[in-house]
Design a protein around this nucleic acid. Structure first.
Length: 271
DNA sequence: AGTGCGGCCTGTCCGC
DNA sequence: TGCGGACAGGCCGCAC
């Protein structure tokens, strides 16, 4: 569900609400998420405070003096701030309650998400250490991308959705970025010129920045921690518009499947 | 090493 | 209205 802009929006909200407040209880209701929630989360976080929240790709990192809680929302995960006494949700798998009687509640119907624990050197965690650069950082450049595309016989869309190449680009923003860059999603990446890489990098940055500014995209059920949707869905040019006219050339957009994911593009504008 | 896909889950929608 | 199948903002881990 959530891609980089959605996770960033959640992080920005949580930073204003749960920092530096003692944790009074930890609830593990369903430990079997993508990976099992480690038992020691309970003892390690008890009476600790979250002193900092960071985002790495689509992972949220809740940093305490004892270690780091790593949270990934998968496809259907939500993190909500609710009163300590709230209406129970059958998919509430994990919750932290704070001294101000607010709870941080992890809800995830499909359980593709994860709640994990690392010591303070979370950068070395197996799930995080091999991740590619943050797309909005200066290290994500055309020079970097052009170097990686050499001899790679993979479709452009699958390439930019690979978190070892660049983090945070999911299905919606991959489709949108390729449209903006005028690159066909099935184009083999080894055929990209340096100029193509420049356009692609610039497009990914533009799309993600705009989406962050609009609080993310709500297609179906994404909500931030205030239980509100984002607004970027009003700015999508291809995703969800298969069969409709291209906003640039009026030809009908093609909807196909690539790597088991719905892919939408304009066969005239994107080459 | 790179590439392609199965699988993890539940909910929803669509066609028969 | 019931049922099966496809699909959904992700991504690891395995075959080849």
């Amino acid at each position: 569900m959530p891609e980089l802009p959605e996770v960033e929006t959640i992080k920005n909200y949580l930073q204003q609400h749960i920092l530096n407040i003692s944790i009074t209880s930890i609830l593990i209701r369903q430990p079997n998420l993508r990976w099992r929630i480690p038992d020691n989360v309970k003892s390690d976080l008890f009476q600790q405070k979250i002193i900092q929240i960071q985002r790495r790709g689509k992972y949220l990192l809740f940093i305490s003096h004892k270690g780091v809680l790593i949270v990934h929302l998968g496809m259907s995960g939500k993190l909500l701030i609710l009163p300590k006494q709230h209406k129970p949700n059958i998919h509430e798998h994990f919750a932290l309650t704070f001294a101000n009687d607010k709870s941080l509640v992890f809800i995830d119907p499909r359980r593709f998400g994860a709640v994990l624990w690392a010591d303070s050197s979370w950068q070395e965690h197996p799930l995080l250490r091999d991740l590619g650069p943050e797309p909005l950082n200066d290290e994500f450049t055309a020079t970097y991308l052009f170097q990686l595309v050499q001899n790679r016989n993979i479709a452009a869309k699958q390439f930019i959705m690979d978190s070892h190449i660049v983090v945070g680009v999911g299905n919606i923003y991959a489709n949108e970025s390729l449209f903006l860059a005028k690159i066909h999603p099935e184009r083999k990446v080894k055929t990209l010129s340096f100029d193509d890489c420049e356009k692609l990098v610039a497009s990914i940055k533009t799309i993600l920045q705009m989406a962050v500014a609009k609080g993310g995209t709500t297609i179906r059920d994404y909500v931030n921690s205030e239980n509100k949707g984002g607004n970027f869905q009003h700015y999508l040019k291809v995703y969800g518009r298969g069969g409709k006219p291209c906003v640039m050339c009026n030809n009908l957009l093609i909807e196909s499947r690539l790597g088991q994911r719905t892919t939408v593009y304009c066969s005239t504008c994107q080459v």
